[in-house]
Amino acid sequence: MGSNFTYVVYAIIFLAVILLVEGLYFLISSTTQDEKSANKRMKLIDKTGDQQIGLSLLENRTRRKKNAASDSVFDKLQKLLWSSGMNLTLLGFFAIAGILTAAIFSFFFFRRETGFILSLPTALVLGVGIPYVVVFAKAAARKKLFGEQLVPAIDLISRGLQAGHPAAVALEMVSKEMPDPIGTEFGLAMDEINYGLERSVALDNIAKRFPNGDLMFFNSALEVQRETGGNLVGVLNNLSSVIRERRAMRKKVWALSSEGRFTALVVGILPFAMLLLISSLNPTYYTEYMGDPAFIIGMSIPVVFYLLGMYTIWKMVNIRI
């Protein structure tokens, strides 16, 4: 029992070090409050009546990003949290992951007596994976909603241009009349433009936060019209029609490939479900043979074929339009 308690102490120290490193990182970078404020931009405008409420925030963010050569893992995760729209910081994310990891480890190690070697990796994978999957799903849903809102936003801009408004006013109409997320994102872009950023750069920043091919076409249409002139209203109307047709085709392909995606889901979940079920019914079923070289080889081959099969199914059902 003494050795088991030592392992528990090591696991707690490991989680504590992770949380300490994350806390020091955010204490130095001081991005938490900035991101939280920007995410509530429209609410702050409603309360204060100040249309330029986001300028100080955007100034600080722009100054920091000028010195960043590339995005780190933390920056990518921060972008994912931003895209998800959740009121959750990186420190909060890792705090939840740490608590969940400790709870899962305690369950498998003490209640199921699975063993330290199997309990710790399982707890780490589930403890970090479950919050990440939740955030990723929220971000994916919000990005999908952004794509669905893009066509009405383009139509709104086109009607504003037909009414005689300049392009800047038409873009601002989206931030005022469209709901979140596209209304908030265009509002942040307008704040960046008012702050002094080029319109193309501000719109490209939206595309970085919400990668969307149709949005890139929209940005290109605006820049081409600004440099060469032409009928921007006609271009936007044609772009809106093309996006609608692509969306209809995408839904048709999605329906035709639904059987393959369901097969991939079942095949992907079944091995892990059986592993958890067998480990719950008989905790020593795998652990007593983990030191045997034949067991390692015998388990490695199915894992390789499993990954190849999942990749093949994914390539078959993931049809890009």
Rank of each mutant, 00 (worst) to 15 (best):
T48Q: 03
A255P: 04
K79P: 01
N87H: 12
V17L: 15
M42V: 11
G147V: 00
A221H: 02
R63W: 03
S220H: 07
G54W: 01
L24M: 11
M274D: 01
K315H: 07
G196F: 04
N87R: 14
D34K: 05
R159C: 09
F217C: 11
F94M: 13
A255W: 04
L277I: 14
V317E: 09
R64I: 14
I154P: 01
K79G: 13
F262I: 14
F217T: 10
K252S: 15
D155N: 11
A221K: 03
L256R: 06
R41D: 11
R244N: 04
I13Y: 07
G160L: 06
G2Y: 07
V174G: 02
A140Q: 12
G2D: 12
A137V: 13
T48A: 04
R244V: 06
R199T: 07
L270M: 06
L20A: 15
D46S: 11
V233M: 15
G164L: 10
G92W: 04
E223H: 08
Q162C: 00
L236G: 05
F136L: 06
L276C: 09
A153Y: 01
M190I: 07
V17H: 10
N60D: 07
M310I: 15
I157Y: 02
N219A: 04
R250H: 06
N231S: 15
Y132F: 14
G183N: 08
I243W: 02
G183H: 08
